[in-house]
Computed example of a mutant assay.
Amino acid sequence: MSFPLPSTPQGDDRMQDRIKFSDADFKVIADLAMRDFGLNLTSAKRDLVYSRLLKRLRVLGLEDFREYCALISGPNGTDERNAMLSALTTNVTHFFREEHHFKLLREVALPGLIKTAKEGGRVRIWSAGCSAGPEPYSLAFTVLSMFPEAARSNFRILATDVDPEILKKAEAGIYPEDERKGIPEAFNRFTESAGPGKFTIGRAARELITFGRLNLIEDWPISGPFQVIFCRNVAIYFDKPTQSRLWARFGDLLSPGGHLCIGHSERVLGPAEQMFKAVGITAYQRHPGIGRGAPSFEEPKK
């Protein structure tokens, strides 16, 4: 999942004349977005927040942002806070995005992990912030191209996102035909037709993946260890303290020698710098002997 892009579209002045959006309204929304999702809404994003949430007011039949703030702040506001997240986030994703990470997976990480799985060992990959699903499915295609019997071993991919609506799309795994262009031709055998102008993900890839809702700033109902974690283009929209905590938490869940791949504008900073070494473009490997790497795994609660 990706949070709002840095550019902020201007609101409609005529609409702003009719529906007031006060500093107090913006503060309520920004505080809740930070508290519940870690979303750092600075004042520069005020126009974006206004334009995105104005649509929610219309759907709900509310007259002003004061009513909306009362709703999301109240005891019955959970569903609307999730809807607010969907409105404020921009799920920009495609198959095999940032291909250099998949090259690292193929050439560096997977050969040893496949050997481990063939010998009866446990292998786990985590797509954290999986958005509409192209990332975990790309991971599954890559694994299956090298290890067709992966689903019959103890090899699994966990795919999580905070947005329940985008997770439904990921689990459905149905995409417009033009998105197939991002998939290498050799991997098309892992997809199937879903009717005119659409394709879907085949059974072999689906069998490798468990989807679940997970909020990266809350407690995690998982304990690892993972051998590979992808968390790309999510942390850049957290503030620096939240980013630092996230990198350290990932480090704790990675096996010694495990790999972390992050977004093209992100860097591992803070105490976690001591846990990782850079091994490629926005790719890191966990140093041995630092972090816990607990020997258990639980699927996330949905």
Rank of each mutant, 00 (worst) to 15 (best):
E119Y: 00
L32R: 08
S138I: 05
R180L: 15
D252G: 13
D219W: 00
A159N: 07
L57A: 06
G120R: 06
D13F: 09
A30T: 05
P196T: 10
T8C: 10
L216Q: 08
I157N: 02
G133H: 04
R35E: 15
V279F: 06
A151L: 07
E179P: 00
F95V: 08
R14V: 15
G202E: 03
K181E: 14
F211W: 11
P176L: 03
R56G: 07
D23R: 12
V108F: 02
H101R: 07
F37D: 10
F297W: 15
A294S: 12
K115R: 15
Q16K: 15
H101E: 10
N233I: 08
Q274T: 14
A151N: 00
P221S: 09
V59H: 09
P184T: 08
A172V: 00
K27G: 00
E63N: 14
R46V: 10
G251E: 07
L260R: 04
V49K: 04
D64L: 04
K118N: 13
G257E: 05
R14W: 12
E135M: 03
Q285H: 02
R180H: 01
P225I: 08
V143C: 03
K118H: 11
K168Y: 00
K301D: 03
S265I: 09
A172N: 12
G257T: 09
R52P: 06
V228E: 00
F199G: 03
R18F: 14
L71W: 11
P225Q: 06
H100R: 10
E149V: 03
A294L: 14
R97E: 07
E273A: 15
S153T: 13
K20R: 14
G212Y: 11
N82M: 13
A109Y: 02
K103A: 14
K118I: 01
F199S: 05
S193T: 12
K55H: 11
R81F: 11
E149F: 05
Y237Q: 05
A150G: 05
E63D: 15
H264R: 06
Y237N: 09
M15H: 05
I29C: 10
C69G: 13
P300F: 08
G291C: 06
W126A: 03
V123R: 09
A30Y: 04
S244V: 02
P6F: 09
A140F: 02
G257H: 01
P111I: 06
D161L: 07
D17M: 12
W247N: 07
A24Q: 14
Q243A: 01
A194E: 11
V279A: 03
G257W: 04
L216S: 08
E185I: 04
G197P: 02
C261Q: 01
F230N: 08
R286E: 06
S43F: 03
C231L: 01
R180G: 03
K302Y: 05
S51Q: 10
V228D: 05
L54F: 15
